[in-house]
Amino acid sequence: MSDYEVRPAVLRDAKAIAEVHAAAARAAYADVLPEDQLRALAPATREAKWREAIEYAEPQVHVAVLGEEVVGFVGFDRSRDPKTPSTTGEIWAIYVRPDHWGQGVGVALWDAAREGLEEEGCTVVTVWVPLRNDRALRFHELAGFKREMKTAKTTSLGDVRIEEIRLKRNV
């Protein structure tokens, strides 16, 4: 039995979500981004985005809490990819504070997102993951996602180009 509770995010969670997002991104991209860009991954650059997402439920956001402390979050909704059926959902973001990695928080968040997508009528779910983020790839593959090899694309994160691949599984 986990001590983590997952619940829908509320507006007062936006700052904590931004802090989790920044800390997890800095840890995940430590070997990918230069130091100045890692420092730029600050909570202040993300709080307004997450406040808006919570307010308008686009994407839907759930948080994992330990006591009163937000230690992770997931954003999910219908797929943003062009030409996907309305029954395709997407994990827009899933982040856990690095000091809680490997403790079941990600699984609890994924379970909540899967249930939410199922309630929305989604039968398939996708997620975009940087190819150099071995931890995220391993997590999603253990959760039953399979790589769609022909979907690889390059995106920019600051001045660095990142190769991403889409993973997919049934809800």
Rank of each mutant, 00 (worst) to 15 (best):
H21Y: 06
A48P: 02
E58K: 14
D31K: 13
Q103N: 03
A28R: 12
E69A: 13
V70P: 04
E68W: 10
S79I: 08
Y56E: 14
G158Y: 05
G75P: 07
R39G: 04
L131F: 11
V107P: 00
Y56T: 15
E119I: 09
E69S: 15
S156H: 11
V127Y: 10
A136K: 09
R161C: 02
L142H: 14
A24Q: 04
R12W: 05
A16N: 01
P43N: 05
D99F: 04
P85I: 00
A9W: 06
D81F: 06
I94R: 03
A143G: 08
V74L: 03
E55N: 14
N133A: 13
P8Y: 00
R39K: 14
R7P: 02
V61M: 06
V105L: 06
E69I: 09
A23H: 04
W92E: 09
L137S: 09
C122I: 05
A27H: 05
R97T: 07
E55I: 04
E52F: 00
R51G: 08
I162A: 10
G102P: 00
A143E: 12
K146A: 15
E58V: 07
A25D: 01
V32I: 14
T88A: 14
V6F: 08
E58C: 01
I54E: 03
W92K: 04
L11K: 12
V70A: 14
R166D: 04
G144M: 12
K150Q: 10
R161Q: 14
L131D: 13
A53R: 12
V125L: 11
E141F: 03
R51C: 02
A53W: 08
M1V: 07
T123P: 02
W110G: 05
W101N: 06
R169K: 15
D134L: 12
R26I: 00
E19G: 14
W128Q: 10
G106Y: 01
T154Q: 12
A112Q: 08
P98M: 02
I162P: 04
Y56D: 14
A113S: 08
R138F: 10
W50V: 01
H140S: 00
A22H: 04
Q37R: 08
K153A: 13
T151A: 02
A16G: 04
W101Y: 10
K146P: 01
L33Q: 06
P43W: 01
T155M: 13
V105Q: 02
W92T: 05
E52N: 05
A152F: 08
L38I: 14
R78P: 03
I54N: 03
E115I: 10
E5D: 13
T126G: 12
D134P: 00
R132T: 08
E5R: 13
M149Y: 01
V105A: 07
D3Y: 04
I91H: 10
T123D: 13
G89I: 00
L33W: 06
A24L: 05
A23D: 09
K49V: 08
